[in-house]
Amino acid sequence: MSAVEMILAALRAGAGNPAVAEPYAVLRRRLPPVLDPGAEFDEETLEAARVVLRLAGPRYTVGIHGAEGVQVGDHNVQILLTLPPLSPAA
């Protein structure tokens, strides 16, 4: 993972996550307004990104090809209704 990819992953993982609010704020303060794909980052900025990623916890890749009724994520609710078939119009 490149430095920019790691920082972007940390920004995604930390946005709106109260568990990492403080480390996320530290990372945001260390970044320029626009990330250049070829940018070089100092070790303190990279460490801030590592801290956010470590505290945010693991992310999973879920394969759902061909599946039906799949829920991905936390705190989901699924309600299934079985309805009778429509009768043909008379």
Rank of each mutant, 00 (worst) to 15 (best):
M1Y: 01
M1I: 00
M1C: 00
M1R: 00
S2Y: 10
S2W: 04
S2D: 15
A3F: 10
V4I: 13
V4M: 08
E5K: 10
E5S: 11
M6K: 07
M6C: 04
I7M: 10
L8H: 12
A9K: 01
A9N: 03
A9C: 02
A9E: 03
A10W: 03
L11I: 08
L11Q: 04
A13F: 05
A13E: 07
A13L: 13
G14F: 08
G14N: 11
G14A: 13
G14H: 08
G16T: 14
G16H: 12
P18T: 04
V20Q: 13
V20I: 14
V20H: 10
E22C: 01
E22G: 01
P23T: 01
P23V: 01
P23G: 00
Y24G: 09
Y24N: 10
Y24T: 11
L27N: 09
L27E: 09
R28K: 07
R29L: 13
R29S: 11
R30E: 00
V34T: 06
L35W: 00
D36V: 06
D36E: 15
D36P: 10
D36F: 05
P37M: 09
P37E: 15
G38D: 12
G38S: 15
A39M: 08
A39L: 02
E40K: 09
E40H: 10
F41I: 05
F41A: 10
D42L: 02
E43Q: 13
E43L: 13
E44K: 14
E44L: 14
E44P: 15
T45I: 08
T45M: 05
T45F: 05
T45D: 04
L46T: 06
E47C: 07
E47W: 09
A48D: 00
A49C: 04
A49K: 00
R50N: 07
R50L: 09
V51P: 11
V51D: 06
V51K: 10
V52I: 07
R54C: 02
R54E: 09
L55T: 13
L55Y: 14
A56Q: 04
A56M: 03
G57F: 02
G57W: 03
G57D: 05
G57S: 03
P58Q: 01
P58M: 00
R59V: 09
R59C: 06
R59W: 03
Y60H: 08
T61H: 05
V62G: 03
V62W: 01
G63T: 13
I64K: 06
I64Q: 11
H65T: 09
G66P: 06
A67S: 03
A67R: 08
G69F: 01
V70M: 00
Q71G: 15
Q71I: 15
Q71W: 15
Q71F: 15
V72S: 10
G73H: 11
D74I: 04
D74L: 06
D74Y: 05
H75F: 02
N76Y: 03
N76G: 11
N76S: 06
V77E: 06
V77D: 05
Q78Y: 02
Q78T: 07
I79D: 11
I79K: 12
I79V: 15
L80A: 15
L81A: 08
L81Y: 13
T82Y: 13
L83V: 11
P84L: 01
P85Q: 08
L86H: 14
L86E: 15
L86W: 14
S87R: 05
S87K: 05
S87A: 02
S87T: 09
S87F: 03
A89M: 12
A90R: 07
A90Y: 05
